[in-house]
Simulated scan of single mutants.
Amino acid sequence: MKFVAYARELQGTGASRRLRVSGKVPGIVYGAGQPASIELDHNALFHALKKEAFHSSVLEMDLAGKSEKVVLRDVQMHAFKPLVLHVDFQRVDSTTRIHKKVPLHFVNEAESQAVKFDKCLITHVIASVEIECLAEKLPEFLTVDLGGLAKGQSLHIDDIKLDEGVKIITHGKKNPVVATVVPIVEEEIVVAAAPAPAKGKAAKGKK
C-alpha cells in the first residue's frame, strides 16, 4: 500500500493543534537514520486505517518525492471523536527484523466435520498473533484452516502453517489454543406450573 506524507517544519503542541484544525495529522518516522517529523492528510489516513493491510503490511511512503518502506507502529486516536491525533512509522529494509501483530483469517469452518456432521460450533479463541520475521517476509495475515476439526478437538498455535523465517511469539505460553470445538447446548424450555386456585376467599384481617 502507498501513501503520501509531507515534511513537518513546526514542532510543539500548538503547532500540532493547528495542523489538526487544518485537516492534517502530525506524525514521525524513525529507524534507519534520523527521525523525521511528518504530516498526513487526516481523511486519507483515517480511511487507510480502516484497511487491515495498512496495519500489518510493509507500506510505501512517498515523502518529498522519495519512496521509503515503512511499517505502522502506533496510532493515537481521540477518546471519543473519530479523529486521529498522531501516528508513528518505522523505516524498514531487507535486513530489518520486526515484531508485529498480524490478524488470523479462519477458513473451511463450515466444511469441517465439527460443524457439518457433528453439529458443533467452532469458537475462535484469538483473532491475531504477534510474529517475528524480516520486514520483507511480513505476511498481511495468517491463514488458519479449520477444515480438519471434529467434535472434542482444538487447534493450537503449532498447527498454523508459517512461511520460512516467520515465527509466532507466544510470550512463554506453551502452544496456546487458537480455536476450539464447542458442542451446541439445546436449551430446555421449562414451563412453570400454574398456581392452584385458592380455596374460598382469603381471610379478612381483624378490625
Rank of each mutant, 00 (worst) to 15 (best):
G12S: 02
T123I: 01
R97L: 00
V178C: 14
P103G: 14
K101M: 00
A203N: 12
T170S: 14
K101C: 03
V102F: 04
K66I: 06
E140G: 08
G200W: 10
Q76T: 02
G172E: 03
V87P: 05
K66L: 08
R97V: 03
A179M: 03
K2Y: 07
G27Y: 11
L149M: 13
L72F: 02
H124L: 01
S56P: 02
H124R: 14
L19S: 08
A53I: 01
L155M: 05
H99S: 12
A179L: 01
P35E: 10
N43S: 07
K201Y: 01
N43Y: 13
V75N: 11
E164A: 11
P176L: 01
D158W: 03
A135D: 00
K167V: 14
H156S: 11
V29E: 08
A64L: 11
V107H: 10
S154T: 13
C133P: 06
P26Q: 03
Q153R: 06
H156Y: 07
E60G: 07
K119W: 02
P82A: 09
Q11C: 06
L138F: 03
Q76N: 06
F54Q: 15
F141V: 02
H156T: 13
S128M: 15
L40I: 02
T95V: 09
V107A: 10
R73E: 15
V107G: 15
L162A: 14
A15D: 13
H86C: 00
A150C: 03
E109Y: 06
V181C: 12
A48E: 01
V177Y: 00
D159P: 10
T180C: 11
E111F: 13
